[in-house]
């Protein structure tokens, strides 16, 4: 027996009909809807500028699709809860936790993951270059997420203050504690001195 369904708030339905009947009716109703109206599984996703046809389950998160369906394992799953930021990707240029985004909700949007940050010729994005120069990453697990947040920041604000950078990256945990080095990287990438 489903607790949710039966627990409460039958009064409205009861006024209309008898309780037992209404319960069955509700269940039948939902079964009907399962058959029609729920999302199509085969969809097109725009990932790093490429259209990809993917078979996506209705409940699938973008992190799963990227990692397990498309092999883009640069997007890391640190907590799968929106509490660490390792899975940060850009959706229409805005940082999002891919672990907490349904793939179906990005059908009409542009997704950029860490694999799409470097230039087409393989040269590194200024953020990537600066992170190398500053030895920003330590274990590196949070780095793709840090980079995505930083890329979004610089796209919008090419010369951020250190405080703006700190705020913009604040949704990304680094357990190694390399925050200072990441901020140095952002400042360097934006052509500003770290002194």
């Amino acid at each position: 027996m489903n607790v949710n369904l039966t627990r409460r708030r039958f009064i409205k339905a009861v006024i209309a009909s008898s309780a037992v009947a209404s319960q069955t009716g509700c269940q039948l109703g939902s079964k009907d809807l399962h058959a029609k109206g729920s999302v199509e599984r085969l969809i097109s996703l725009d990932i790093n500028g490429k259209k990809r046809r993917v078979d996506v389950l209705p409940q699938e998160t973008l992190a799963s699709t990227l990692r397990y369906k498309l092999g883009l394992t640069g997007t890391k799953i640190g907590c799968n809860r929106g509490e660490c930021g390792a899975c940060t990707v850009l959706i229409d240029g805005i940082p999002n936790y891919a672990c907490s985004t349904l793939s179906h909700s990005v059908r009409k949007r542009q997704v950029q993951s860490i694999e799409g940050v470097a230039n087409k010729d393989g040269t590194l994005h200024p953020i990537q270059e600066a992170f190398v120069e500053e030895l920003s990453p330590q274990c590196g697990f949070c780095t793709p997420g840090q980079i995505m947040s930083a890329v979004a920041l610089l796209n919008e604000n090419p010369k951020p203050s250190r405080e703006e950078a700190r705020q913009a990256l604040s949704g990304n945990i680094c357990r190694c504690g390399a925050y200072d080095h990441y901020l140095n990287g952002v400042m360097r990438a934006s052509g500003q001195s770290n002194e």
Binding site: N4, L5, R7, R9, S30, L33, V39, P58, E60, S64
Partner: peptide, 25 residues
Amino acid sequence: MPEVQLYQPTEVDDALNLAEKFRQQ
């Protein structure tokens, strides 16, 4: 994520209908 159906209505009425049909579910 466990198995769950997903509806992405674009119209207000569709959303309200779905909300009514599924209620607690």
